[in-house]
Amino acid sequence: MKLPIEDYSFNLPAERIAQIPQEKRDESKLLILDRKNNTLKHDIFKNICSYFSSGDCLVINKTRVFPARVAAKKATGGKVELLFVRELARSRWSVLTRDKIQKSRIIFGDNKASAIVSGKDVSGEFVLEFDDGISVKNIIKQFGEMPTPPYIKRNTDCTEFKKKDFERYQTVYASNTGSIAAPTAGLHFTDELLNEAKNKGVNIAEIVLHVGWGTFKPISTKDITEHKMLPESYFVDQSQADIINIAKRLNKRIIAVGTTSVRTLETLADNNGEINHDSGETGLFITPGYKFKCIDIMLTNFHTPQSTPLALVCALAGRDKIFNAYNEAIKNNYRFYSYGDAMLII
C-alpha cells in the first residue's frame, strides 16, 4: 500500500508552535480521541488518571536527554554548532551540523580541546576524532545546551529559557542518559500524577529507548513506506517485561507514553502481545496498515507534518481521525510539538 507523503501534511499557524513549556507540567491541555466512538473531548492533563483503570499498565520511557548541542569553532575561526549524536568508540563521536566542517579541525572552548572531522557517513552524520586523553563527555557537560528542536527558537538573549530547558526538556522520571531529544509525551507527568495513578491501581512499567536522529529525521521519500528509520537503542529488563506481560495475560490495557514506548513494545512483542526482555536497536517504522500487537492506548503530543511520529499515530487511530483531531486542536488553540499539549488515543 502506497502512502503519498503529501497526505501527511497540514498547515499550522506559527503561533501554535509552543516555544516554552506551560508553567506547570500538568496544566497542558489534553485532547481525548475515542477511536471506537469517533469522538473528541477536551480536558486538562492533571485529569488524565480519570481515564485509567485499576490493572492498567502505564509504560514510560526513562531515557534522559544530555546537553548534546555544542557551540564550537573551526581552526580557521568560523563558528559552528554541533549536535552530538552518539559515541562510536573511545574518542570518536558522530555529530550533525548544518555548517560546512568536512576535513576541518574543530576547537572547543578556549583551545582546551580539539577534534578532526574524519568523515561523513551515508546518513549525513560527521565523525569527530578527538585528541588522546580528551574527555568528550566533559566537553559536552561544560559547553553543551539542551538540544531543543529548531522550531523552538533560542538566541543569545534567551539565557533564562535555555537554563529552564535543562529542567523542563526532561521528564520527571528521566534517569538513563543517552537521548538527543526528549520523549515529549512524558513531559506532562508530575510525581504527584504518577502517585495518583499508582494509588488507583495502575501498574507502571519502565523501558528505555534513547531517542536519536531516527525519530526526527525527515521523511524524504514520496511514498512514506519507503522511508528507512535509523536505528535507536533500547533496553527492557525482566522485571519490567513481567509487569507488562502480566497485564496482557489479565486482559488489562497497555498504555504507552509516547511513540518511543510504542516502538519499543512493538519491536519486542510476540504474536500474543507479550514482550521479551532484551536490549538492542530498533529501526521499526510504524505506518498505516501496521497491526499493533501490544499496546491498547497511547499518550502523545501533536507532531510535525510529514514525520515518522505522525505516521505512527495515524497507524493507530487512522489518518482521518488524527487529522480531524489536529484540526480541532488548532481551532481550540492547542499548543503543538515538543513543549505543546497532549492527546490520549483510546
Rank of each mutant, 00 (worst) to 15 (best):
T97M: 02
R98E: 09
R98D: 10
R98C: 02
D99G: 00
K100H: 11
K100P: 00
K100W: 01
K100V: 05
K100G: 02
K100M: 02
K100T: 07
K100Y: 02
I101C: 04
I101H: 03
Q102A: 13
Q102I: 08
K103N: 13
K103I: 00
K103W: 00
K103A: 04
S104V: 00
S104W: 00
R105I: 14
R105W: 04
I106A: 02
I106W: 04
I106Y: 01
I106N: 03
I107F: 05
I107G: 05
I107N: 10
I107T: 11
I107H: 04
F108M: 06
F108Q: 06
G109L: 11
G109E: 09
G109V: 11
G109A: 12
D110Y: 10
D110F: 02
D110W: 04
D110T: 05
N111P: 06
N111C: 08
N111M: 10
N111D: 15
N111Q: 15
K112P: 01
K112S: 13
K112E: 15
K112D: 14
K112W: 09
A113S: 14
A113G: 10
A113H: 06
A115W: 05
I116V: 06
I116M: 13
V117W: 12
V117N: 08
V117I: 15
V117E: 09
V117S: 08
S118T: 12
S118M: 06
S118R: 11
G119Y: 01
G119K: 02
K120S: 03
K120P: 01
K120V: 08
K120D: 00
K120R: 15
D121I: 05
D121T: 09
D121V: 03
V122R: 13
V122F: 10
V122D: 15
V122G: 04
V122A: 14
V122P: 03
S123H: 13
S123Q: 11
G124Y: 04
G124A: 11
G124I: 06
G124L: 05
E125T: 03
E125L: 11
E125H: 05
F126N: 04
F126I: 04
F126D: 03
F126S: 07
V127Q: 07
V127E: 15
V127A: 07
L128S: 10
L128T: 06
L128C: 07
E129D: 15
E129N: 15
E129M: 10
E129G: 07
E129Y: 05
F130K: 14
F130C: 12
F130D: 14
F130V: 10
D131P: 05
D131R: 10
D131C: 08
D131K: 13
D131E: 15
D131F: 02
D132M: 07
D132G: 07
D132P: 12
G133V: 08
G133N: 09
G133H: 12
G133E: 07
